[in-house]
Computed example of a mutant assay.
Amino acid sequence: MANTAIRVRLTQGASESDIGALKAWLERERKLEALRTSGALEIQERAGTQDGPGSPMGAGMDIVLVLIGAAAPKLFDEVFEQVKSGVRAWRENRRSVERGEPPEVDVEPAGDGR
């Protein structure tokens, strides 16, 4: 099955405000915003999946970007790269406006988003 969803997971002590801030940042990324406006992309917060030892304590939410429609598999790689770029930009911005290191962020394919 083609990938049609991307999971963004904040680790190492991320706070609820970090999750909200990163989700808002991704929603404002130009290409992602255009896809959201056209109905081809949804950005959701979901309860995080804890993957065994080393899972972060703290915020247990993931941000899931779900591509919708027939073009979803074709758009996946482009959106995946845009999300990784947006996450890097958010971490740099957070580093400049808040004390301490920003949380690590894992960006990975998430199957069909269900």
Rank of each mutant, 00 (worst) to 15 (best):
M1E: 11
M1A: 10
N3E: 15
N3G: 03
A5E: 01
A5S: 13
I6W: 01
I6F: 02
I6K: 02
V8D: 13
V8K: 01
R9M: 06
R9C: 07
R9K: 10
L10E: 09
T11C: 09
Q12C: 10
Q12N: 15
G13S: 14
A14T: 05
A14H: 14
E16H: 15
E16Q: 13
D18N: 14
I19N: 12
K23D: 12
K23C: 10
A24D: 10
W25E: 11
W25I: 05
W25K: 11
E27Y: 09
E29I: 11
E29H: 11
E29C: 11
R30Y: 13
K31R: 15
K31M: 11
L32P: 08
L32K: 08
L32M: 15
A34E: 14
L35V: 03
T37D: 12
T37Y: 07
S38M: 09
G39P: 08
G39K: 08
G39E: 10
E42R: 11
I43G: 05
Q44M: 12
E45T: 13
R46F: 06
R46V: 14
G48F: 05
Q50I: 07
P53E: 15
G54D: 08
G54Q: 07
S55C: 03
M57L: 10
M57Y: 00
M57R: 13
G58S: 09
A59H: 10
A59C: 09
M61Y: 08
M61D: 12
M61A: 10
M61W: 06
I63Q: 02
I63E: 04
I63C: 03
V64R: 02
V64H: 07
L65V: 06
L65G: 06
V66G: 01
V66R: 03
I68A: 02
A72K: 00
P73Y: 07
P73L: 06
P73S: 04
K74P: 00
F76M: 04
D77F: 12
D77N: 12
E78R: 10
V79L: 02
V79T: 11
F80Q: 03
Q82G: 14
Q82L: 10
Q82E: 15
Q82S: 14
V83E: 00
V83L: 02
K84T: 08
K84N: 08
S85A: 14
S85V: 05
G86P: 05
G86A: 02
V87K: 02
V87Q: 02
V87L: 03
R88D: 14
A89R: 13
A89Y: 03
W90K: 01
R91E: 06
E92N: 08
N93Q: 14
R94E: 13
R94D: 04
V97F: 04
R99P: 01
G100F: 06
G100K: 05
G100S: 05
G100Y: 07
P102L: 02
P102D: 04
P103S: 02
P103Q: 05
P103I: 00
E104S: 07
V105A: 00
D106M: 04
V107N: 04
E108I: 02
E108A: 10
E108Y: 06
P109W: 04
P109S: 06
A110N: 11
G111P: 06
G111Y: 05
D112C: 00
G113D: 00
G113E: 00
R114Q: 11
R114L: 06
